[in-house]
């Protein structure tokens, strides 16, 4: 039988995080039902599914975004490695968690500050104020976000002057400046045109050498292009998880097949 180079055995792949029997409730309404899902280290994992399936809810559990609203409740665990920390633990500081797992949102949301100060913001919050350190870190982060060449001569300009695609890369640079171990992308290109989308996708490809990426996307072709693993969710359940190659070519589950082939309705 013809086959490509064998994929690594999942048992041997290091995990960056793992949801274990995760339930989540918005008040009385259960949005996630007993989700167990590994997130492999320095790989891209895409979460797909129709609106309301719980993919964004799941993503937001990782950096404790839900803590910001009263009445939300987690059950179960998200283990974070290598220190085997439970991200949802009551003793874990959400602010610290957000330093290690940075989020990039659907619409670019730069602060009304200069390009430089947007990227330096996280470092300043952590008490880094030495100019030479900030300059180095900002440059490094902008290079990491593939934005440096476009903005190096106008770092003091307002971030709002940048194009949508540049603003999104600036938000990625801002996230990278605090040297996160994991990046959480919540539909990062849904507000961008195809060219800006392609540059973000290329960036995701480059970033995965250094960080683990979890991405929510409505664009199935994007999930197919950028991810190593794909998880399909429906109504709060995890329906199928596997190598993206397999999920998009030969899904095991009929529901997954119907969704990715546009038969879902």
């Amino acid at each position: 039988m013809a086959s490509k180079a064998p994929k690594p055995d999942l048992a041997t792949l290091p995990k960056k995080a793992e949801a274990r029997a995760l339930n989540f409730f918005y008040g009385a309404k259960q949005a996630l039902k007993n989700i167990s899902l590994p997130v492999y280290d320095r790989r891209v994992t895409a979460l797909i599914g129709p609106s309301g399936c719980g993919k964004s809810t799941f993503l937001r559990c990782f950096n404790r975004m839900h803590d910001l609203y009263p009445g939300n409740r987690y059950e179960g665990e998200i283990r974070f490695f290598p220190d085997d920390l439970n991200l949802l633990g009551a003793d874990v500081d959400p602010i610290e968690v957000r330093m290690r797992l940075a989020m990039v949102f659907q619409k670019p949301n730069p602060f009304p500050k200069s390009i430089f100060e947007n990227v330096a913001y996280g470092l300043r919050v952590r008490g880094v104020n030495q100019r030479s350190v900030l300059v180095d870190k900002v440059e490094e982060a902008l290079k990491g976000a593939a934005l440096w060449n476009e903005v190096k001569d106008r770092l003091d300009e307002q971030a709002n002057n940048l194009s949508g695609g540049q603003q999104q890369r600036l938000c990625i640079a801002r996230a990278l400046a605090s040297e996160p171990e994991m990046l959480l992308f919540d539909e990062p290109t849904s507000a961008l045109d195809p060219i800006a989308t392609a540059s973000i996708e290329e960036l995701i490809h480059q970033l995965k050498d250094k960080v683990t990426i979890l991405i929510v996307t409505h664009n199935m072709q994007q999930a197919a292009r950028v991810s190593d693993f794909t998880a399909y969710m429906y109504l709060g359940d995890l329906i199928e998880f596997g190598w993206t190659d397999d999920v998009f070519f030969r899904p095991k589950n009929k529901q997954t097949e119907d969704y990715i082939t546009g038969r879902f309705g």
Partner: peptide, 10 residues
């Protein structure tokens, strides 16, 4: 036009 996937692509 359709970017078929899975069984449609096959």
């Amino acid at each position: 036009k359709r970017q078929p996937a899975a069984s449609d692509l096959r």
